[in-house]
Design a protein around this nucleic acid. Sequence first.
RNA 1: GCUGCUGUAGCUCAGUGGUAGAGCGCGUCAUUGGUAAUGACGAGGUCGAGAGUUCAAUUCUCUCCAGCAGCACCA
Length: 667
Amino acid sequence: MEAQHQNTDQITITLPDGARRTYNAGVTGLEIAQSIAPSLAKAAIAVRVNDQQRDLSDPINEDSSLSIIKTDSDEGLEIMRHTVAAQILARAVKNLYPNAKLAIGPTIENGFYYDIEFKDPLSTDDLEKIEAEMRRIKETGASILKSLNTKADTLKAFEERAEPYKMDIVQRAEQNDNFQLYTQGGSIEEGGFIDLCRGPHLPSLKHVGAFKLLKVAGAYWRGDSSNQMLTRIYGTAWRTDKELENYLHQLEEAEKRDHRKLGAEMDLYHFQPEAQGSVFWHPKGFTIYNQMEAYIRRRLNNSGYREVKTPQLIDNKLWEASGHWGKYRENMFVVPDEIPSTDEDGPVVSDKAFEKLMALKPMNCPAHVQIFNQGIKSYRDLPIRMAEFGCCHRNEAHGALHGLMRVRQMTQDDAHIFCTESQITSESVAFCDLVKKVYADLGFNDVRVVLALRPEARAGSDEIWDKAENGLRQALIEAGLEFTEAEGEGAFYGPKIEYHIRDAIGRSWQCGTLQLDFVLPERLDASYIGEDGDRHRPVMLHRAILGSLERFIGIMIENTSGRLPLWLSPVQCVVATITGKADPYAGEVCNALKAAGIRAELDIRNEKINYKVREHSHAKVPVLFVVGAREAEEKTVAIRRLGSQDQNVESLEKAIESLANECKPPY
RNA sequence: GCUGCUGUAGCUCAGUGGUAGAGCGCGUCAUUGGUAAUGACGAGGUCGAGAGUUCAAUUCUCUCCAGCAGCACCA
């Protein structure tokens, strides 16, 4: 066996290319970089030692593998962002607002934020001032020094600086030593700026690129809504001005594809204060909705599901039995089951305690169990796959509402599978396959799968949870899906699989879900007769693919920038005339399109063709059939597709046949 | 729900302590045109709601409502 270099002066450093170099113990990353090349030392901002990010100034005491981090890598960029937040933004704020209290300042995708308590509210206008101070600090090119401190010294330093949040963090830490403080503009004792941080940080501000503060918002201390609300300042930082510009441009582009904006422009739906969080679907939007629903219905019908429809308004006795009254009541719309008073002066309903309450259903599951419970079920009946395009109401917090993405009335592509324990895996595998097909049909190929495991507050024994989690895990493996596991993220009644889809601009949406439930069948006393002649509890699988139709349509709109696939487009083809002489022929063309099942509209307005093309392009009509005197004469159409300047002249018959073919849904 | 910002014509927005303006859209008329804006004329607003200050409030103050950005929550 090879002897270890223990307590010797020499250590071996292995570089990424496999080269080994020997150094004195205690050598720093910076010294190693210098020994390789001075230019590398100049560009270096941190090191990765045995797969851990460390500061350049950290001494290395044992044999290690090491790579030099520069800002040209993703992790280098992230370190730079971290320094901009913790060293530049925080310092600028303290310079301008000495009474501000710093909390935490981590990096996030594409940027960073810092949570700070201010005495007076901060507005977006103040950001310019802070940004100017940040630039000034950056120009100093100050070195960032690091020190390791005891708990007592760290607390003292923050006490002197009146930083209660930092003190709170230190006090809660389990360790007693090695608190990393990064200082700038003077040592800790000299009263320089300090920040507590797990690091690493840039060695100096000379490595900082371009940055911009973006917005201010409130955020709770430690993410807990019972805590004080702090002011969160968001910013972004990049290597160069050019990169920053690109990113800001990207943000503008994302704004343009906002489904709320596009929905109004395309005349799909609207919202108004009298029905906050509920959609007024316009004819065009509802066409999309109906197409989407019909598509899922075909998929479900051919996957062994039977569709049902259950009541909207249900007595609270059932919600009490299901557990919703206890666990979910604050999200439910509750309605007294009482004839309203018609007294002109009196209240619309009496204010005495209501004898009977009903609630709009927030979920379909209890109602589905009621259908299951009708009659006696045998193991031979299982699995029963019960689907419903269930319209659910949830009393969402006002601040949570967001266009179609978060509404109070939604329709889920919901279904519940009642099965035996031994069927869990096969049912789950089948569902995973179905989900994959549907997402692919709808244009989402980047799907992330998460297995959410038992939360702390849960129903059911550990034995049941073991069984449930293993069942889902096994199903994911059999379905050949890559997945990650999330501890503590499961529902209180069972673990779940979450399907997250990534859209065209990189955002991730949780849509599909498969949840295993041992609790509800118990609470609502669902049972079947097993092979042995005894009663058994069925297992319930809650599952949805789109999640809510409303939200999924919002995602589709943003994913496609409103250029929906042909089969979902509200208007698939507009027949536009060049001259009034072609009007009768255009009418024939439009009728022929409709007869072929294509959603077509006629545009014979007294406008120039340029104008019509422009308008329909803006409206994102995928196909234009342009007809003038020539086309009328020859019984042809000039086809123009959205996003193309080309025109194709084809015979009417052929054009309709191929378009009808293209307009077919994917399934 | 919490923090901050915003609310003027159908839309996007300008503006003012003395009751309002642009562009687009809309309507009428003329124009019959060949693939991203033809021209002229015209109609549209209790300036989010309520209260207060003032001789006078769309403008200043307060309250409420709604929207937006986050947070918390979540499909």
